[in-house]
Amino acid sequence: MDFTSAIRRLGRTRWFARIGRAVSGLDRRLQKRTRGRWSVLGKAVLPQLILTTTGRKSGQPREAMLLFARDGADWIVIGSNWGQEHHPAWSLNLLASPHAMVTVHGETTAVVAHLADDDERTRLMPALRAVWPGYDDYAARAGRELRVFVLSPST
Rank of each mutant, 00 (worst) to 15 (best):
L49N: 09
D27H: 09
H87G: 06
E85G: 02
H99N: 14
L41M: 15
L95S: 09
Q60T: 13
D118P: 03
G59T: 12
W38L: 15
H114S: 12
A64T: 07
G25S: 11
Y135T: 11
L92I: 07
L66N: 02
S58V: 04
Q31G: 02
L124F: 00
M65H: 10
G36F: 07
P98M: 10
I78L: 15
P47E: 10
H105W: 04
Q48M: 14
V104K: 10
G72V: 03
P47Q: 03
L94K: 11
S58Q: 03
P133S: 00
I76Y: 12
R62Q: 14
H114E: 13
R37F: 01
R70F: 13
L115C: 02
L51M: 10
D119R: 12
L41S: 14
A110E: 15
R29Q: 07
L128Y: 00
D74L: 03
L92C: 03
A142F: 04
H105G: 08
S80L: 07
Q60V: 10
L30W: 07
P133D: 10
A100F: 05
M101I: 08
V102A: 05
H99P: 04
G55T: 08
M65I: 14
D118T: 15
L128W: 00
L46S: 10
N93E: 06
A113L: 03
L51H: 08
I78H: 06
L128I: 13
S97Q: 13
T108I: 02
L128N: 02
V111S: 03
L51S: 01
V102D: 04
G106H: 07
D71A: 15
D119N: 05
V111N: 06
E120N: 12
R70M: 09
H87N: 11
Q84C: 08
L115V: 09
Q48R: 07
V131F: 00
R144K: 03
P133C: 06
A64P: 02
E120I: 00
G72R: 02
A100I: 07
P61I: 14
V77L: 08
W90P: 01
R35D: 14
Q48V: 14
R33Y: 09
A89H: 13
D137M: 08
T54S: 03
R129Q: 13
N93A: 06
R129P: 04
G72K: 06
A113I: 12
D27R: 08
G59V: 13
V102R: 05
G143T: 05
A142N: 07
E120L: 01
K57A: 11
L49C: 15
V77A: 14
P98A: 12
H86F: 09
T108G: 06
Y138D: 12
W90I: 11
D74C: 10
I78N: 07
N93R: 09
T53S: 08
P98T: 06
R28V: 08
K43V: 15
N93M: 09
R123L: 00
E63D: 15
A130S: 15
S97I: 06
A140N: 10
Q31F: 06
R37H: 12
L66Q: 06
L94R: 05
A139L: 08
S91D: 11
A142R: 10
G36N: 03
Q31D: 01
R123I: 01
Q31L: 11
A130T: 02
P61Q: 04
N93T: 13
W82I: 05
A139D: 12
V111K: 12
V77Y: 12
D137C: 02
H86A: 15
D71S: 15
L67C: 01
D27N: 15
L95N: 04
Q84V: 05
T109G: 02
A64G: 00
